[in-house]
Design a protein around this nucleic acid. Sequence first.
DNA 1: ACGTACACCTA
DNA 2: GTAGGTGTACGTC
Length: 994
Amino acid sequence: MKKGDHLFLVDGSGFIFRAFHALPPLTRKSDGLPVGAVSGFCNMLWKLLTDARDTSVGVTPSHFAVIFDYASKTFRKDIYDAYKANRSAPPEELVPQFGLIRQATRAFNLPCIETEGFEADDIIATYARKAEAAGADVTIISSDKDLMQLVTSNVHMYDSMKDKQIGVAEVIEKWGVGPEKMIDLQAMVGDTVDNVPGIPGIGPKTAAQLLEEFGDLDTLLERAGEIKQVKRRENIVAHAEQARLSRRLVELRTDVPLGLDLEALVLEPQDGPKLVAFLKAMEFGTLTRRVAAACACDAEAIEPAVITVESGATARGPDLDPEQAGSSSVAAPAAPRTARSQQTGTELGKDMRPADLAKTRAEAFATAKIDRSCYVTIREIEELDDWIRGALDTGILAVEAEGNSIDPMQGELAGISLALLDNTHAPSGGEIRSAYIPLDHKTGEGDLLGGGRADNQLTIREALDRLKPLLENPSVLKLGHNLKFAYLLLKRYGITLQSYDDVMLMSYVLEAGKGGQGLDSLSERWLGHVPMTWKDVAGSGKSGLSFDKVDIERAMAYAAEKVDLTMRIWLVLKPRLASEKLTTVYERLERPMVATLAEMEERGITIDRQILSRLSGELAQKAAAVEDEIFQLAGEKFTIGSPKQLGDILFGKMGLSGGAKTKTGQWSTSAQVLEELAAVHELPRKIVDWRQLTKLKSTYTDALPGYVHPQTKRVHTSYSLASTTTGRLSSVEPNLQNIPIRTTEGRKIRAAFISTPGHKLVSADYSQIELRVLAHVADIPQLRQAFAEGIDIHSMTASEMFGVPVEGMPADIRRRAKAINFGIIYGISAFGLANQLSIERSEAGEYIKRYFERFPGIRDYMENTKSFVREHGYVETIFGRRAHYPEIRSSNPSVRAFNERAAINAPIQGSAADIIRRAMARMESALAQAGLEEKARMLLQVHDELIFEVEDAEIERTLPVVVTTMEQAAMPAIAMKVPLKVDARAAVNWDEAH
DNA sequence: ACGTACACCTA
DNA sequence: GTAGGTGTACGTC
C-alpha cells in the first residue's frame, strides 16, 4: 500500500445494530427470515463499490475490508470485569442476520475480518494506522463515536446512512474537542451502553470544557484541586482511578495481530454470478437487477444460492447447501479471504455438485432401513431440553404436530414428534434420531366415560414453553410434511412457526403430475419404504379412534416414523431441487403460501345462516312441487336422482330417442341431453329444474351451515397446495371455490357470504388472465394489441375470424368467438368445440382452421408445446413451474390426445396460478406497508379472484393497494407483453362485491 | 364401510 | 376441449 491508495474499512458489526434501529419496518424474506439489516448492508456495499466517488466520500477505494466483532471475551474484559456487562442479548430478529452479513461480505468478494480477543474497533484502528503510515488515505465506514479518536487529516469516517463525511472539523463541531482528545473525553464521560464508568456528573460539554482548560486527562487529574465547582472537584478527585481505567477501555489498540496484511485487502473484481445468486436468495429484487445489469449477467438464469442461517459468530447450522457448494454459478472462491481461523458452518458435501449430491443421497436412502425400535418417547422435561439443545446445535429439526382431529382449526394438540440429524458431515446427510412427546393422551380407549389423562406425560404448557423459542427461532430450520397443518394447529397455541421447509411442496415442485404428494407416497417413491398407515394406528370407521385415544406406544411409532421419513425425504429432495433448477419455484411460489394460506384459513368468512336456512326451505318447496309434476308426467314414482332409473323412464318406458351414452354404456341423462329433449317433451326440462334445485340445496344451503366453526362462528375452508397438476390451489371442507354465481337462485347463496359489521367484502379479480397469458406466451400481435388498447377480446376474435366490425358485433357471433377462445385455452378439438356450440364437427373444424390461419402463432405454440411435452414429459409455466404428463407417450390415441390438450392448457392455467400466488405472497406486506395491517385482511382465493374483508373507513385506501399488487404480480421476474388488469369492488356480500 | 359413476357447481 | 370438489345412488366387500 502506498501514497494515493485509499483503504475503506467497514464496521460490519456497528452497521448491523445501526441498520436495525434505523430501518423500521422490518424487512423480511418470504419465509419470514428478517433481513432488513442485511438489505441495508448490501445496498451500502454496492453503492460504495460502484460510485463512492459520487457520495460525500468523494474517492474510489483501492483496498477494502469489512471488520466484525468476534463474539468472545476481549482483552477489555480482563481489564474491567464489568465491561459491556450491561449489554443484553441482541434482539431476536437480529441474530440470524449476523451470519448473513458475513455471507454477504463474502458474496461481494470482500475480505471478512475478525480476530479473537479484539473488537472490530481495534482491528479497524490497527489497519487505519498502518495504512496511514504507508502514506495511504483511509475511510472508516461508521458513525460510531468510539472510532472518532482515529480521525486525522488522512483518516476520515463516513456515515453511510446520512451520506456524511466525518473529518477533524466534524469531530470538533460535534464534541467540542479534536479527535486527538476524544479518548480523554470518552474516559471522562463514560458509556452506559458499554458500561464504561467515566466520572459521575461529567457529560460531554463539561468534559470538553475541562479538556480545553487543562489540555488532557492526566493534567486535569493532577491539577483537579484547581477546579472551583465543589461537587465537580470532589467527583473528579474521587474517581481519578476510575477515569484512568475508563481511558484504557476506550482507547483503541493499534497493535492487533492481523491475519491479512494490507496488501491482501486490495479490491478484487466482483464475481457477478456469485453475488447475484446471493442477492436472489435474499430476495433483494432491485439490487439483484442492478448488480446483474452492471455485471452483464442474466439474473433469471442464475439460481439463488441456498443460504445457511448462522447465529452470530458461532456456527449454528450445518451448511446443508449443495447449491452454494457445488453449482458453478455460486461456487465459493478458491481461497476465501477470511482472516478467521474458525470457519463458520460445516459445508456438507462441499466438493459435490448438486446433481451428484442428489444422486448420492437418493441412492443412500433408496433402500432405507427404517428401524422403529430406535424411536423414543419423551416424558421428562430434561429429556426434552436435551433434544432442544440438539436442534440448536445442528440447526435442523423435523417436526410434526399431532392433533385429535384431522382439522387443525378444530382439534386439540395430542403430541409432537421431533427428528434430529447427527453427524451431518456424512454425504448421506447424517444419522437421524426420532422421538414422540405425548402431551394429552387419554386412557381407556373405547370407554364411554372417555377415560382420564394418561400418566407420565409432559403437559402441553410445559412442553410448548420450551418448544416455542425453538419453533420460532429463525436460525433453526424446521422440516415438515404439509406444514400448513402444524402451522395452524401450533398457531392456536400461540406459536408462529418460522423458517421451514415443506417436503410435500418440494416434491410437488419436482413431480407435479407424477403421483400423490402424501407422506406415504413420498416415502415409497423416495425411500422404498411403506410407512404405518393411519388405519394401522387408529382403526377406521365407527371404531376409529382420535389420536389422543391411541395407545402412546403405538402413537409414538407412528408419529416418530413420520418425522424420521420427513427428514430423510428432505435430505433427498433438497439437493434435487437445486440440481433441477427448481429452487426459485419452490422459494417464491410454494413456501410463502404455507403461512399465507394458514392465515387465510384461520380468518375464515362469515355466512348468514338465516339466509341459507330460508333458502333451503324455498328450495325444498320448489323441488317438491317439481317432483310432483315429474311423477305425473312419468306416470309413476321413481328415484329422480338415479340416472339409471331416470334413463329407464325416459328412453325405455317413454321411448324418447336417446342422445349420448356414458362411458359405461348407460344412456346419458346429462343436462345437455335433457336440454335437447326438452323440445319434444315436457319432462326433461322438469328434470333439469329439479336437479338444479336439489343440487343447490344439498351442496350449499344444507351443507354450508354445518361448516360454521363453533367458536369463531365463521367458515374456515382448507386449501390444498399440492393437489393439482397445474399449480392451482384447491379448496375443501367446504369447497369455497365453487360457490354458485351463474343463476339467480345460485347468486342468492353467494349473497349469504357477508362481511362483519363495520366492514365490507372486497372482491378483486383478474380480467381475462388466461387469454392474456396466452397472448404473452404465444406472442400474438392482434391479442397483444387488443389487450393493450382495452378492446373486448372476444369481439376482436370474432372480427378477425368472420370479418364483422367490432362495433355493433352481433351477440351470437361474439358468443362463438368466445367459445373458440376458451377452446384454445383448453387445447381445442373439433369434437369439443362442436359439442360446446351444438354444431357439426365439420363446421367446428372449419372454425378452428380459420382461427389458425388468422392466428398462426397459436398453432405454433400448440405444436411446440406438444413436441416439448413428448420430448421432456413435462411442460413449464412462465415462472418455470413444471407439470408432468407421464402418459403423453401412451399407445392409446385418446389418452395421448387428452394428455396433449392438458399439456397445452397447463402453461396457461399454471402461469395464471403462479401470478396470483405471487400476488398473495406479497399482499400481506403490501397492505402492511400502506398501514392496512389488520384493517384489510385477505380471506379467500378463487383461482383468479381474491376476497378481502376490509374496515369501512379503509376501503378507498385498500382498493388501489390490492389492484396494484395483483397487476404487478408478475414483475420483476417476468415483464408481461400484455398488461394485467384487475377489477375490484366492495359490498356487504360476496354477490354484490363480485 | 368404501369405491365408483354420474351429475353439476366453480374458474 | 382444461383444472378442481361434493352429493347421491348403487355396487361390492
